[in-house]
Amino acid sequence: MNPQELLLWVRGTGLQLATAVCVLGMTYRLLHLALLGRKKNLAEARGSEWGPGLRTMWRRSFVLPELSARGKFTVVAGYTFHFGFFITLLFLSQHIAMLRAVLGFGWPALPHSAIEIAAILTLAAMIALLVHRYMDPVKRMLSGFEDYLTWLLTFLPLLSGFMLLHGIGPAYTQMLTLHLLSVELLLIAIPFTKLAHMLTTFSARWYNGAFAGYKGVKA
């Protein structure tokens, strides 16, 4: 298989396979969770659970003042890399061209300079978080193979994309192939790892809030 054939496979069959695994896995996980159902409560509660549920979804998005400096670092660096990742993913003109081909519509891109800043900040934040995860004894103890794997799978598309855009490393054909392969690996890993949080975070927060804010007897 020559480099062009490999690129063609990655842009076609490879992407189809990765998308199928990701969508099938995530649909299954979400729907299966929803269909588990909740035990019917026979006692009437005071007020609705939606209020505390929604409030928790909102409040957990902030850096709480009671967090220590190290906690703040995790939150701030975490936010930086999440926002940076989404800015890079959704507002780079090449990505919009790809999404337009899939979705049938697009939106205006940000200037490359803005994307570059976002990408560099994201890469820096991710490296800082990895170092912190390793240096902090508590975090290190809590971390397992999956945590490092998901870090790598998230980092690789960003790094290969940055290199591709700046003509660093192998020729464009090979670099584009590597970039797309790294994206496909990420897509395949999503349903099987903690990366599934991208679709379950907010519902989980709502559930926690609804549970904690419940006023009444469970019967």
């Binding site: 063609l8 069959t13 189809q16 998308t19």
Partner: peptide, 11 residues
């Protein structure tokens, strides 16, 4: 950057 096959139908 765009896929060469139909991703929407597969999804």
């Amino acid at each position: 950057a765009a896929p060469t096959s139909n991703i929407g139908a597969i999804a």
